[in-house]
Structure formats: structure tokens, C-alpha cells
Design a protein around this nucleic acid. Structure first.
Length: 574
RNA sequence: UGGGCCGUCGACUAAUGGUAGGUCAAGUGCCUUUGGAGCACUUUGUCUAGGUUCGAAUCCUAGCGGCCCAGCCA
């Protein structure tokens, strides 16, 4: 009890000072200082349930929940479900799951649709005040009347309808008497405003659609602008943080709150997260799901939280990444390598090490007894003593990585080649003696000798070897499917295409490589879906839900840093 | 072309009128039973031009550049 209390105090007291500042935190601190909301901090995370959350949402989640938590505030999860045609319970369930997975817990769980009655009442108030009117113009006409970026709009002929008529018409809209699109309710603001959002924005549209929560109760639905600010206000949200593209809506957000005289929530905008080599819009992600470019919303190549989770990312890695990226009002695009750094950092501490050979090459140790099997002691995690060790079977015939043998070694190649001695990790020193080739001239077997005195990996005479390679006993190996992922796109910014071109032209057609008969050490036979490992010298891998007992499927989360690959690349250039 | 927002190392971000710093990336070396990890070191930056000031990344003006807005989407 005492230590945790002390810890919490330390956190609460020192955190705001020790963290690098950002303008959101500064704003909250200022509001606290001026007692703007009597010391209260209330935020909300307001997704529309029309798709799956992606890492961009993770940033918003960390900001909404993280900042509130930092100042002892509360955070609601609120679904902005005002457009029944695009929304579904499938999405609300996945969103809840993803928020929890990230490690956040909401205080209130709300839906904009919970406020439909209140919103309707408020709309009537505005009509009575002469601040809203029913417009019979068609969508096309409304667009024409709105004007352009440089020209003012002009008033609708229905703009000055008497209050009584508006009231009656709006009631009939609500009663379902009119067909979709035949009328709307608009706020009466200013058709000449340079801010198009203020040119009599639509508050309600007619939509005879079944809503995933309210069913067929409503034939009219409020627009975002007539729902979001009021929902914030109802929930007494003090800091309503949203992305930059809503900045133009802020005057309207405030206008409704002022006209209605309700709790003065305030909107603050911050920049979205952009990441290289992927796309980050629900529209584009949906398209790739629907046209089969990827296998689904949780395809491990997707930047969705479901995709990252399946790929093997941890919530901690994502949270650390988001914290490192920071928040501002610039429009940037973060290097994917930064995200990868944070998974490696996290997984390095916690992932159990195992040996797996992705592209097997048979090694026969000629002087090792035919039927002998030894159990070699292998550390589970050199970074974490408490992870313990395990036994790995060793025998006369092994698999090593094809990359770990070269008949003719290039300069600086430290691995196995004829006459060269290397260490088998946790095993023996071996020396390559000869190769066996098939009719095509491909090497199918390497024959070696081992030094029995080097068991465990050290030579009593103190001689050193340059390289340690991983291996799996052929007789004991488990066959596995391993899925290797590359970036979904070939270029850093896939949506940056010349006019008339499409982001799909930037797709990397080789973003998935499936290895069918990788050889794993036997301890991996029944790896549980979602469990994460480091395959030594290769990378981090996570067991996919497609795994069956005895037939595991692994996804590569991220490769280990590969210094040799850099050397090789440099050599190739010269 | 109206309005809004924004320009700091290759990327992201800090410095809140007073030493341009951090992370990633890149590079060099050390170390290593993972060419992993770790450690040390290094390179590169305030969009431009004026102005205010003892002093400007920070304030002002102008220019240049980028992003957003003309859904009955959010």
C-alpha cells in the first residue's frame, strides 16, 4: 500500500514538470490555474463506429485518456453515432476492445444517440428563437446557394419562414412524413460568412434508416455539428480535443453552445498522426479490405490496432511510440522506423528467445554419434535472468539458415564456409568440411565436424570464433508456416500521387511472403495464438490465430536490426 | 483566388524574449555465445527579407511554402 501510494504521489507531482511540454498540457494547466472549470478535467474519446481503430486513433486515445489521467480527470468513451447508414455494432464492439487493449478504461460509456431526444428539443428551441429553419431546397440547390470559397452564398427562399411553419414542418419531419432528402433543418447564421461552416449549416437531415441502437425510432438524424458540441456539453467535457481539420468548425461548435446557453465545453485541435509507408484514413483502409488487397481489418500489414496486435505489437510499444511522437499543430509524417524502434525496445525486454530456421539448409555432423541426442541448456532471455532456461535437443543432423553458409564467402563474412569454424548457439563449435549438391548445382547438405570439447559453446583452449549461428535439430524440428511482412506501400507517402493517379499504384505487391516449411525448435509446437517470441538473430514473431495444435503459424512483427545486411548492401554498391 | 491553421536537423519534437536540446534515422568505435542488445562518440536544423529589442526560433510586418474548408459524412 505504502510504496504504491508513494509512487503515485511522485508521478502526480513530478510528471507535468518532467515531461516535455505541449500546447494541450499547457492549456489544461492554464485552465486549472485560472479555475476556468473549477479545477475539473473531463475529456472524451469520440469515435464514429463506422470502421476499425488505427494507430492514428491510438494517438487521440493516449491524448484524451492520458492527459485527463495526468490531472486527475475523467474520460468518457462516446460513440458519435449520428449516421446510421455507415455504422454498426460490429464496430462499437471492436472499438471498445481496442481501447481496453491499449490499456485505457473509460469512466462513462455514452452514445450521441443517447442524446437524440435532448438534441431534438434543443432544435425546437432554436426554431422558436428564430435561429433555425426548415429548408425545402434540394441538396443540389443548397450547394449552389452556398456560394464558393471566394464568393458569398445567398439566402434560401425558405430562410424567413415563420416560426410556426418551421415548427410544424420540423414536427412532420420527425413524424416521418417526408421522404429522404426532401427537407433539412438549418441554423440561421450568415450566408456570407467567409467560414463556410457558418453559411446556415444543416442541423438535421431526413434519413429513413435503421439505427444500430435506436432502431426505427427516428426518421431524422442530427449532423455532426449539431451533435458533437452538445454531447460534450451534456457530459460537461472541459477539454474536447480533436484533429486539426475541425478547426473551422470551432466557431459553429461555440455558436450552438452559446445559443443554447449550455455548459461551455471548449474544443482544442491537434495534428493527426501520419506514418510513412502506409495510409491512415478509414476510407482508404476500408477500400483495401473490400477489394481484397489485404485479408481484413486485422491483416497484420494494416495500421489498424487489430492489425498491429495480430502482427505482434504490444500496447506498451504503441503507447511509448505515441508519447515519443508528441503532439503539435504541424502536419507531419513520422518515420515508420520510429514505430519499429519502440516494438523492438519493448519486445527485447520481454520476448522469450527461441531458435527457428526460416530457410533450412541441412547440416550433417559426420563425427557425431548417429543416434545420440543431447539436451542443451538455452537461456530464455539474456535481458531477463528471471525468464530462466530450457532444454533444446541437439543431434547429428541439424538445420541452419541458408544465409549462414556460403561456399565462397564474401569479404567480412563471418559465418560458416568451407574450412571455417563457427559456434552453434548453446551447442558446439563446428567446422565445414564439404558440401553435397543436387543436379541443379544447389547445395543441399553441408558436412561438418564438431569439437566435443566445446559443448555449451566455449573452447577449453580459449580459441575464439567470429560467429554464432542458430540451428534446429532436424529430427526434432516442428514445421511451421511463417508470414513475413514488408511495407504495404513502396513509397513513404502513398497518397501523394499526381492528379488522376491513385494511391493503389503505390502498393507493394510483395508485402507478404509466406514460408511454408520453416523449422522450429520443439518447444514451439503448441504456441498460443498471440504469444510473442524472438527467433534468435531473425526478429520478433507472434503466433497467429490461424495456428493449429502442432502446426503453428507465425507472423513476423519486425526484423532484428541487421548489421550484416548493411555491410552486404555497401559491398554491393562498390 | 476568400477564410482558418502551420513552417526548428533526413523524420518527429523541446526551448514559453536569454546556452538551439531530446528521440528515431544515418555514421564511427567499443563490447558481445544473437552481425541482436548495450555503451561511447559524430554529422546535419530555426523558410526568406525587413523591423522591435542589450538580446529573437520565440514579438511585429511582408513575402514564400505546406495543410484544411464549398457532404443532407464525421
Amino acid at each position: 500500500m505504502t510504496p504504491s501510494t508513494a509512487e503515485a504521489e511522485t508521478d502526480a507531482n513530478s510528471a507535468p514538470e518532467s515531461r516535455p511540454s505541449n500546447f494541450l498540457r499547457d492549456k489544461i494547466i492554464e485552465d486549472l490555474k485560472t479555475n476556468k472549470y473549477s479545477g475539473r478535467v473531463q475529456t472524451r474519446f469520440p469515435p464514429e463506429p463506422n470502421g476499425y481503430l488505427h494507430i492514428g486513433h491510438a494517438k487521440a486515445i493516449c491524448i484524451d485518456f492520458g492527459l485527463a489521467e495526468e490531472f486527475g480527470g475523467k474520460t468518457n468513451l462516446r460513440f458519435d453515432d449520428t449516421n446510421p447508414e455507415k455504422e454498426d455494432v460490429e464496430y462499437v464492439e471492436s472499438i471498445k476492445q481496442d481501447v481496453l487493449w491499449l490499456g485505457f478504461h473509460w469512466d462513462g460509456l455514452h452514445y450521441a444517440s443517447d442524446y437524440f431526444d435532448q438534441l431534438y428539443e434543443w432544435a425546437i428551441h432554436l426554431i422558436e428563437d428564430g435561429k433555425a429553419y426548415v429548408d425545402d431546397l434540394s441538396a443540389e440547390q443548397i450547394r449552389q446557394y452556398r456560394g464558393t470559397l471566394t464568393e458569398p452564398g445567398k439566402d434560401s427562399p425558405y430562410r424567413n419562414r415563420p416560426v410556426e411553419e418551421n415548427l410544424k414542418l420540423f414536427e412532420r419531419m420527425r413524424a416521418g412524413e417526408f421522404p429522404d432528402g426532401s427537407r433539412v433543418l438549418r441554423a440561421k447564421i450568415d450566408m456570407a460568412s467567409p467560414n463556410l461552416n457558418l453559411r446556415d449549416p444543416v442541423m438535421y437531415r431526413i434519413l429513413h434508416a435503421e439505427h444500430h441502437r435506436t432502431g426505427n425510432k427516428w426518421p431524422i438524424y442530427p449532423m455532426y455539428d449539431f451533435a458533437h458540441g452538445q454531447s460534450d456539453s451534456i457530459e460537461k467535457v472541459t477539454h474536447s480535443m480533436c484533429s486539426l481539420e475541425f478547426a473551422d468548425h470551432q466557431p459553429l461548435y461555440n455558436w450552438f453552445i452559446e445559443q443554447l446557453g449550455i455548459f461551455p465545453s471548449q474544443q482544442i485541435e491537434f495534428d493527426r498522426l501520419g506514418l510513412t509507408y502506409t495510409v491512415m484514413s478509414k476510407r482508404l483502409l476500408r477500400r483495401m479490405v473490400e477489394d481484397g488487397t489485404v485479408r481484413g481489418w486485422d491483416d497484420p500489414r494494416m495500421p489498424t490496432l487489430g492489425g498491429l496486435r495480430r502482427r505482434g505489437y504490444t500496447p506498451e510499444a504503441i503507447r511509448n511510440f505515441v508519447a515519443a511522437v508528441g503532439v503539435s499543430r504541424t502536419n507531419g509524417i513520422v518515420d515508420l522506423s520510429m514505430l519499429e524502434h519502440f516494438v523492438r525496445e519493448d519486445l527485447n525486454k520481454r520476448a522469450l528467445r527461441v531458435m527457428a530456421v526460416l530457410r533450412p539448409l541441412k547440416v550433417v555432423i559426420d563425427n557425431y554419434p548417429e543416434n545420440q541426442v543431447e539436451q542443451m541448456d538455452a537461456q530464455n532471455n539474456p535481458e531477463d535472468e528471471s525468464a530462466g532456461s530450457r532444454q533444446v535437443p541437439f543431434s547429428r543432423e541439424l538445420y541452419i539458415e541458408q544465409d549462414d553458409f556460403r561456399e565462397v564467402p564474401p569479404p567480412k563474412y563471418f559465418r560458416l564456409s568451407p574450412g571455417k569454424e563457427v559456434r552453434l548457439r548453446y551447442g558446439y563449435f563446428i567446422t565445414a568440411k564439404s558440401v553435397v549438391k543436387d543436379e541443379k548445382g544447389e547445395i543441399v547438405e553441408v558436412h561438418c565436424t564438431y569439437d566435443p570439447a566445446t559443448r555449451g559453446g566455449n573452447a577449453p583452449d580459449g580459441r575464439k570464433v567470429k560467429s554464432t549461428i542458430h540451428w534446429v535439430s532436424a529430427r526434432h524440428a516442428i514445421d511451421a508456416e511463417v508470414r513475413i511482412y514488408e511495407n504495404l506501400f513502396r513509397v513513404p507517402d502513398p497518397t501523394d500521387v499526381p492528379y488522376g493517379h491513385n494511391f493503389t499504384e503505390n502498393l507493394n505487391l510483395n508485402s507478404l511472403a509466406v514460408i511454408q516449411h520453416a523449422k522450429l525448435e520443439p518447444s514451439l509446437a503448441n504456441a498460443a495464438a498471440g504469444s510473442r517470441y524472438q527467433f534468435e538473430r531473425l526478429g520478433y514473431f507472434a503466433a497467429d490465430p490461424d495456428s493449429d495444435r502442432g502446426a503453428p503459424v507465425f507472423n513476423r512483427t519486425v526484423a532484428l536490426k541487421d548489421t550484416w545486411a548493411k555491410v552486404e548492401k555497401k559491398q554491393g554498391k562498390h
